[in-house]
Amino acid sequence: MRGTESSDKKLILATGGARSGKSRFAEEYAGELGTTRGQRIVYIATSQLYDDEMRRRAAIHRDRRPAEWRTVEEPYELEAVIRRLSEEPVSVVLIDCMTLWISNLLLMPDESGQERWMKPEHSEWILERAKELARLLKQAPFPAVLVTNEVGDSLVPEYPLGRVYRDLAGQVNQALAEQADEVFLVVCGIPVNLREAAWRSGGKGQ
């Protein structure tokens, strides 16, 4: 589907809108990488299953994946998981998804139980964690495929939390894309390689 050169890529980012097909594309890409590196594929799920709807969504994703894939559920400490997996025999890591991870971190309460998202320094802390995660993945002995969402292609949210989340997701996506070897925008199930379509010849600025 993408050629043997993909086996040399370290970090692949797949983005798109809701129900764009980005998760399915990322799973196919990770599976293809696994055929050349061994099938020790680890799927890291960042969702938290608060209700029946989320459990049904997770089940759909789980049933679609090959049974031999290993699943790790981690809503917060992705960096720790990557450090641990870097010491294990892993072929490919797939993280789905980054925007749920951002949401989890954004809504973390502080020691007093108060919400942190209203403090600008909390968003800055999350952005720095995303940059550290990208650094760890670039250094890891396995390639990684990350799924994220484009949340800014719609109306401006009416409430402050929505605007903070939208802005932070966009900043994190840019930081990840800057480090990614390949960036795909998935539209109607069709992946478009943004590196190949970039306006700046050979540049990584987004």
Rank of each mutant, 00 (worst) to 15 (best):
A175E: 09
W125C: 00
G31W: 10
K204G: 12
I41A: 09
E5H: 11
R129P: 01
R62K: 13
V147K: 02
V145E: 01
N193C: 12
S86T: 10
K131F: 00
A14Q: 03
L161D: 00
I102K: 04
I126Q: 00
A144N: 02
K22C: 08
L11M: 14
N193R: 11
Q179N: 11
A58F: 05
K119E: 11
P141D: 12
P66S: 05
S91A: 15
N193H: 14
A45V: 10
F25V: 06
Q39A: 14
L155Q: 06
A26P: 05
D181Y: 01
G3L: 01
R116Y: 05
A58W: 02
P89M: 13
N149T: 07
E53F: 01
V186I: 14
R57F: 03
A180S: 15
E27M: 15
D51W: 11
D167T: 05
A134E: 04
D52V: 04
H122M: 02
K204P: 02
A80G: 13
Q39F: 12
L161T: 01
V156E: 02
T148A: 11
V93I: 10
D181I: 03
A197K: 15
E124K: 07
E124R: 08
F184G: 04
D167L: 09
T36V: 14
Q206R: 14
I82N: 04
K10G: 12
E88W: 09
D181C: 09
Q48I: 11
V172R: 03
L168M: 07
C188S: 15
S123P: 00
V156S: 02
A58I: 12
A80N: 10
W101E: 07
I102E: 08
A177E: 01
A80S: 14
K10E: 12
K131Y: 01
R19V: 05
R24V: 07
R40N: 14
Y159V: 04
K204A: 12
E73T: 09
E73V: 06
R129T: 00
Q114A: 15
V192M: 14
K138R: 15
R163G: 02
A140S: 14
A58C: 07
T15K: 12
W69P: 02
I44F: 07
P109G: 09
L11T: 10
G38W: 13
R57N: 07
K22I: 08
D153F: 15
R24N: 04
G21T: 03
E128C: 00
L136V: 01
R200M: 11
M108A: 15
V187N: 05
A169F: 01
S6R: 09
F184M: 07
T15C: 15
M1P: 10
G113S: 08
G16M: 08
R135P: 01
G21M: 10
L161I: 06
A140N: 11
A18R: 12
A197E: 13
A175R: 05
N173C: 08
R200W: 11
D167M: 06
